[in-house]
Design a binder for these strands. Structure first.
Ligand code: FES
Ligand code: FES
Lengths: 145, 145
DNA sequence: ACAATAAAAGATATTTATATCTTTTATTGT
DNA sequence: ACAATAAAAGATATAAATATCTTTTATTGT
């Protein structure tokens, strides 16, 4: 596992893809998403169902249905996706696994970890779901391979 | 899971504890380590066996035996423990799970991730296993609860 | 040599994360 | 109403991480 769970990696890649693909108001199906972000289709379906229930993404069933993002969702910080999938532990938990992280009774790495964690959090809170749409269109950044 | 695997968290806490407890040349047994870092004894035993095989820590069997750290081990950077247990993926892998991380074909988060990752790596490479011995003695930092 | 000690190694169990397949429900166009 | 579509939900399956228990091996002091 990397810094995020595999589930969360798929979620973020999918959300970026949906943002790019539906900026024009259309919808995109699970199959197409899975192919384009290189994820197992049925597993991704579960993940997106969950994100949909939580209101992080939108979906409609039936013909011409699929997943999309409304204006509010497009503007969300990426940290909302991370929190929804992995929980906020990555922003709050002790890096050495102590039951609680605090400056009273800190672990040896507390000070340094706090810095790294805060940087990560600031980064993910300042990135929006839609901000890479153009770079994705231009192929400057990619979501697979 | 946090930024490291549970296995790795136990490993780091154990290594810090062994460093502090054996700075005087003595050894410390698995039971005592497990109690003091609040980890499952037998599981930790496996982890330390592995670290011992890899030369990250030292051990002797029999009466008055136990785990300890030689001068070389005491001076190791903490990153060596992380690499031994979790592999170096945390320092190298794409944050979004792409098969390879590179500035050719970067994922959307590549630039920002690189920064966070490098900070983490620099931090772990500049911390030595023994550098918290005194703070641990003084109770300024802790390895459990 | 012997008994005691403590880690190493082996075998197995449990839990969690990841993945797949099937059935159901909502929506759309005819 | 009906047929087609696509997500939602449910039921399993597989793999990996975490955990426990038992047996073996090396070392020490007597
Ligand atoms: S106590 Fe460990 S990171 Fe804060
Ligand atoms: S390609 Fe994703 S972090 Fe480098």
């Amino acid at each position: 596992m990397g810094i995020f769970s595999k589930t969360c990696e798929y979620a973020v890649r999918a959300v970026f893809f949906i943002a790019q693909r539906t900026a024009d108001g259309s919808r995109v199906g699970i199959k197409e998403i899975a192919v384009n972000i290189d994820s197992p289709e049925h597993f991704l379906a579960k993940i997106l169902q969950d994100l949909s229930r939580r209101g992080i993404i939108q979906s409609v069933k039936g013909p011409n249905g699929g997943f999309y993002l409304d204006a509010q969702s497009l503007a969300r910080p990426l940290s909302d996706v991370i929190e929804a999938v992995d929980g906020g532990g990555i922003f709050r938990d002790c890096g050495l696994g102590l039951k609680e992280c605090s400056s009273k009774n800190p672990c040896p790495l507390h000070h340094d970890f706090l810095d790294v964690r805060n940087r990560l959090q600031n980064m993910l809170e300042s990135i929006t779901i839609s901000q890479f749409n153009e770079d994705l269109n231009l192929g400057i950044v990619v979501l697979k391979k």
